[in-house]
C-alpha cells in the first residue's frame, strides 16, 4: 500500500503540476526493468487477485510515468536532463552478473527474478543523486521518495512477522539481504526527511 501511495504521489505531482522537475527518468526506467523481469510469471503463477492486480498496476503506472516524462509535451520540458546523468549500465550490469552468480535455481525466469530483486535494491540511486542536485525539492517529490523507501522498510517487518508466525514460511536470504541493503540506502534520506519535517522546513539534502 505504501508502494502504491508512492506511485499515486508521483502521478499526482506530474499530472497536476504538469512537471517532473526533480524526478529521475533513470530511476523510473530501472523500475520498469525491475517490474518487467520480476512479473514474467504474471500469467503462469497465480497467487491472488490482489497480487495480480498490484502487478498490473505497478507495471502500467511505471510505463505511464515514463510516457509522461518522455512523451508529454509540457512534462518533458520540465525534465532535468542535464542533472539526471546516472548511467543505467552502471547498475544493470553488476546486478545481472550478481544474479548469474547468486541465485537459488539456474533457470531463465529465476535468474531474471533474482536480477529484479538486486536491481530494485539500487534503482533509487539515480533519484537520490538527482535529489542532491535539486535545490527546490517540492513536497510531493519528497513524500514520493519517502513512501518508496518506507515500503521496503515495512517489508522487513513483514518478513520478521511471517518468519515467526507462518508455519510453512521459507527463508529467502536473497530477498532479505537485498531488502536490507535497499532500506539502508534510504537511511540518509530518511534522516533529512524527518529532520525537515520536525523543523517544519523545506526538505533539502546537503551537497
Amino acid at each position: 500500500m505504501t508502494h502504491l501511495a508512492s506511485i499515486c504521489l508521483l502521478l499526482l505531482k506530474i499530472h497536476t503540476m504538469k512537471s517532473c522537475a526533480g524526478v529521475s527518468l533513470k530511476t523510473q526506467e530501472l523500475y520498469a526493468l525491475v517490474f518487467v523481469t520480476r512479473y514474467l510469471d504474471l500469467f503462469s503463477n497465480f497467487v491472488s487477485m490482489y497480487n495480480t492486480i498490484m502487478k498490473i498496476i505497478f507495471l502500467s503506472s511505471t510505463f505511464g510515468i515514463i510516457w509522461y516524462m518522455r512523451g508529454h509535451k509540457l512534462v518533458r520540458q520540465s525534465y532535468d536532463k542535464e542533472q539526471d546523468t546516472f548511467r543505467h549500465y552502471f547498475l544493470v550490469i553488476p546486478c545481472m552478473v550478481l544474479a548469474l552468480v547468486i541465485h537459488s535455481k539456474f533457470t531463465l525466469l529465476e535468474v531474471l527474478w533474482t536480477f529484479s530483486i538486486y536491481l530494485e535494491a539500487v534503482a533509487i540511486l539515480p533519484q537520490l543523486v538527482l535529489l542532491q542536485r535539486t535545490r527546490n525539492i517540492d513536497n510531493l517529490t519528497g513524500n514520493y521518495i519517502f513512501c518508496l523507501g518506507a515500503y521496503r522498510a515495512l517489508y522487513l517487518l513483514n518478513w520478521i512477522y511471517r518468519y515467526f508466525m507462518e508455519k510453512n514460511y521459507h527463508a529467502q536470504w536473497i530477498t532479505w539481504m537485498a531488502g536490507m541493503i535497499q532500506t539502508a540506502i534510504y537511511a540518509d534520506f530518511f534522516y533529512y526527511y524527518f529532520k525537515s519535517w520536525k523543523k517544519n522546513e523545506r526538505l533539502k539534502l546537503p551537497a
Partner: peptide
C-alpha cells in the same frame, strides 16, 4: 542448494 523462494510477494 538454497530453497526455491516463494513468489507470493510483490
Amino acid at each position: 542448494t538454497m530453497q526455491d523462494p516463494p513468489k507470493d510477494e510483490l
